[in-house]
């Protein structure tokens, strides 16, 4: 293992993490809801009609508007998306199906669940971290290295 010091951003990432924690705490303590993005979005497209939806729309609107708010004060950071469109469609389908069956994603299990000391969330987080590590290993060191 070698550490990529060039791209390591400890302070920005820690500060961003604190903001994410504050946002999740707000939604929990004020609205009584878990800030799990896949759950908020999934509840919006669920067929059950008894789910309240408007708060979900507004939470997601806040996410979507964040880049605009950021751009008013500074320049947005770069995003490098190395996956092509086919890979992004496969990835999106897996993320959509997987987070609904697994009842959560990086925010629901990785942040909220671990904050609540949930065993299920710990297991889920270990699962998606491990399979994510394997997927990146295959993409970066098997497929790209062999030039397929």
């Amino acid at each position: 293992m070698t550490i990529d010091w060039q791209h390591f951003t400890p302070w920005a990432s820690l500060a961003g993490g604190l903001l994410i924690g504050i946002a999740a705490s707000m939604l929990l303590l004020l609205n009584g809801r878990i800030a799990g993005i896949s759950g908020v979005l999934g509840g919006l497209i669920a067929f059950r009609q008894d789910q309240p939806r408007l708060w979900r729309v507004l939470f997601l609107a806040g996410l979507l508007i964040a880049p605009l708010a950021w751009a008013m004060t500074g320049t947005l950071p770069e995003a490098t998306i190395s996956a092509d469109y086919i890979e992004l469609i496969v990835a999106g389908l897996l993320v959509g199906v997987g987070t609904r069956y697994g009842t959560g994603c990086t925010s629901g299990h990785g942040v909220c669940g671990l904050s609540a000391l949930s065993l299920r969330s710990l297991v889920a987080t270990l699962c998606f971290m491990s399979s994510g590590i394997v997927a990146v290993y295959v993409v970066r060191h098997v497929v790209q290295a062999s030039g397929v």
Partner: peptide
């Protein structure tokens, strides 16, 4: 469901580099 769902999510996360929140923000 928890195990296989989370494993599938991780594969998609690694492949695309996006999880749900950042994808919506971007």
């Amino acid at each position: 469901r928890l195990l296989f769902g989370s494993l599938a999510f991780g594969v998609g996360w690694g492949l695309g580099g996006f999880c749900p929140g950042p994808a919506l923000v971007w």
